[in-house]
């Protein structure tokens, strides 16, 4: 875009994160930005902003599609409007282990989806492991029947409600900022998240049990504007591509170490962990495609084939 009163060189990209600057992943994203700057040889500058400072995620993704020079923190469900199949990456019990994320992202299948969203102005910069989600609640859940009548807090989107359905129980939608209050006052009996989030949000103060449902091996993604990318010098484009693709492998061990650390912290805080008969959830999880008629037929089989 042309500028009236200000010129800009190197090109400044602002990264808009959901997490706060106290979150353990914040310095990791700063490191990601530094890697891009170094690889770009002075053509790019990356600034990292915490807690959706620049705008709410969904609004900023729309702005990105219109050419905003922003690197937006997100997950594959946010691409649902642009290519519904992306949401399957966040379907419960589909992705089995952290390594699957890289395999899937680099497959021909997902590269095809990427091209489709690029045509709509959005470019996927990186996809990497976010953490495995478990259930915090006021009772121990060992199999799916145990969640009956349990009010489980979810974000109000289609895929999160689907996660709630697979877990069983009663879906209770609240905004993230109201979740602590909802848990502490009993509007919700439980909530699901990676261990680090359960810790940093202090949700663990409200309920005694964490059941290791492992229902979602979650992906996090950074999106940018295809238009901004096209206007960049070649060195910058190359830097974004190589650092972005390579980052999947960099982040994964960091997050796994973090999960161990937070399990320790939560146990120290007095929470009781229990294992879960995950297979009792599989039948419900297999029904997920029925609730997403907009997905390409046979999507689950293809994904299962790719991740083996």
């Amino acid at each position: 875009a042309p500028t009236v009163l200000r010129a800009q060189s190197p090109v400044l990209l602002r990264m808009n994160l959901v997490v706060s600057n106290q979150d353990p992943s914040f310095p990791m994203w700063q490191d990601f930005g530094k890697r891009i700057e170094e690889a770009a040889e002075g053509t790019l500058k990356v600034e990292v902003y915490p807690t959706e400072t620049l705008g709410k995620t969904n609004d900023m993704i729309e702005a990105v599609s219109r050419g905003a020079p922003i690197l937006q923190d997100s997950d594959p469900t946010h691409l649902y409007n642009y290519k519904p199949d992306f949401a399957a990456m966040m379907a419960p019990y589909l992705v089995k282990k952290p390594e699957d994320i890289g395999t899937l992202w680099n497959s021909d299948l997902v590269r095809g989806w990427e091209e489709e969203v690029q045509a709509q102005g959005i470019r996927v910069l990186t996809m990497t492991y976010f953490g495995t989600r478990h259930l915090l609640s006021n009772r121990q859940v060992e199999k799916r029947t145990d969640t009956q009548g349990l009010k489980i807090r979810n974000a109000p989107t289609k895929m999160w409600n689907e996660v709630g359905r697979v877990l069983g129980g009663i879906i209770t939608n609240t905004a993230f900022s109201e979740a602590y209050t909802a848990l502490s006052q009993g509007v919700a009996d439980g909530a699901e998240s990676p261990l680090s989030v359960i810790y940093s949000t202090k949700w663990f103060e409200t309920k005694p049990y964490i059941s290791l449902t492992g229902h979602l091996v979650a992906t996090t993604s950074i999106l940018m504007s295809q238009k901004v990318y096209d206007d960049l010098p070649e060195a910058a484009q190359k830097a974004l591509d190589t650092v972005g693709r390579g980052y999947t492998a960099v982040r994964q061990p960091q997050i796994i170490a973090l999960e161990d650390e937070y399990r320790g912290k939560l146990e120290e805080a007095g929470l009781t962990f229990n294992d879960v008969d995950r297979e009792s959830f599989f039948a419900a999880a297999a029904e997920t495609p029925d609730h997403f008629p907009e997905w390409t037929p046979g999507l689950y089989d293809k994904i299962n084939e790719i991740i083996g």
Partner: peptide, 10 residues
Amino acid sequence: AGGFVRKTPV
């Protein structure tokens, strides 16, 4: 005008 792509979640 660009808002036909993005839809409310439910």
